[in-house]
Design a protein around this nucleic acid. Structure first.
Lengths: 261, 261
DNA sequence: CGACGTGTTGAGTGTGATCAACATCTGTGG
DNA sequence: CCACAGATGTTGATCACACTCAACACGTCG
């Protein structure tokens, strides 16, 4: 057996539901080029569907595997990640969460959560009531369709991830992951080029790639020496995206706008 | 770089759309305990939504990465799998397909397919028109909800898979995969215990686990010698499910019925 | 019959894991 | 103010799990 990462962290829970600072009609995300516009009646419905906002500190656990939650979330600002643990503490990070991502449908639409979620930075989440989801499908089929669209997009990312972990070498995996996160962040309007710092530790990268921390470090140092990335201030900076994509053999994300629920 | 599997197969395409042998109202799957009943009006709609049946031979490619298809499918009978290839032919199997599985939404709801699909046995697929999907959401929100439910279930399986490939040892991975497929097949009513033969080659197992063929063989032989499985007649037979689950540290699939679209 | 797909095994190699030590930088309590 | 613990990043030495290569057995099929 190979134990390359052991996690037994005690989690801080996020602050409880707050009032709302951002009505859906003036959602700061929706004006970004990454997102499709919504119909006025859909927006109005969403605003009533939205129950409030949740402030989650860096390092807090928004969802915990095995628990039940009455809520769904959309990440309004901040970074996070989804992960699963094995009994002995080995951790696998499944995907990263960025603004606009719908949280809580992955893995189960009802019933116990099958994965956990932790925030990488102080974040704001829009809170929705899971129990009213069917109502959303009934009153606004277009939004229901959008949710399926987002689920489908999540599957695409998981497929790519699985391909990477299963069949790419350590270098290829690292290059793919960093290029992938960078592109996602760029599309979401979080900045691009050297201005963007991906707020992860090397332990996060290791647990995403299915590699040990030490080997991850050595692989990232190689990428640094090749002038493709820089590691600093608690995060990763992309210097040469093209070259990363070349190493990974990755074509990049498709263009096109996505729905925002 | 590690090249552990190289696939350059020329694919047979499945037979073209046929007439219908199975009207949805008397779908042989729906009476199985694994599936939820549907409302009569939903059934009637589905029957009109269904365009026909597709007969796909063992080894044929129902979907090919990079192509576009106007269809969605539900697997009516037979086995298949979803996979992705790297440029040099390395293959990663993403998940297996069994009766009742909705095919074609994973990875993209519209646009190019992001993965391929190959059948493991002669199969029958129900054919639906992708372009009428929004109509389904409009007229039968419950069915739309069901589709999201199925997408969510697919994500749960992918999450488990990723955990396995990323963080489990070869033995654990193999034990997990076989137990997982066995349980899925049992839940779908394909048989259980020694009566069920999982129709895969060791190359399929290798490409699912992210291992080389040789190492997969050695790992499977260990499981054989431990009396947990038998490999024969072009497939795998489970002898001791409990023990496999114990090795994998896997709790099993949740119970409960799932929707059928 | 030979070609091919599939499963099996041994020998040698290498990628990536483990162990260990150390450098920084935090924050925290004495 | 300093000492110390903890989180994070870095590097070298050693080990082992899994990969590659190679050969062979067996069945099916053209």
């Amino acid at each position: 057996m190979t134990i390359t990462s052991t996690h037994t962290k005690q989690y801080v829970l996020p602050a409880t539901v707050q009032g709302r600072l951002y009505p859906c009609e003036s959602c700061p995300l929706r004006s970004l080029p990454a997102f499709r516009e919504a119909e006025p009646d859909e927006l109005e419905f969403l605003n009533r569907f939205k129950k409030g906002e949740l402030l989650a500190q860096k390092g807090s656990a928004v969802l915990v595997e095995g628990s039940r939650t009455p809520h769904l979330y959309t990440l309004l600002s901040g970074w996070g990640f989804r992960f699963k643990l094995l009994e002995d503490g080995r951790r696998q990070i499944l995907n990263y969460l960025m603004p606009g991502d719908l949280i809580g449908l992955q893995g189960s639409i009802e019933g116990e959560m099958q994965h956990s979620i932790e925030m990488l930075s102080d974040s704001i989440l829009c809170v929705f009531d899971r129990s009213r989801l069917l109502e959303l499908y009934r009153k606004h089929p277009g939004l229901g369709y959008d949710i399926t669209w987002l689920a489908s997009r999540e599957e695409r990312m998981l497929d790519e991830n699985l391909l990477s972990v299963g069949r790419r070498s350590a270098m290829e995996r690292a290059a793919y992951l960093i290029a992938f996160i960078h592109e996602r962040a760029r599309c979401t309007g979080l900045g691009s080029g050297r201005r963007l710092i991906i707020p992860v530790t090397q332990q996060h990268v290791a647990d995403t790639l299915g590699l040990s921390l030490v080997h991850t470090n050595k692989t990232l140092r190689k990428l640094s020496r090749l002038g493709m990335i820089e590691w600093q201030e608690g995060g990763c900076r992309v210097i040469n995206l093209k070259e990363l994509m070349l190493i990974a053999g990755w074509e990049g994300l498709g263009t096109g706008r996505r729905p925002l629920v």
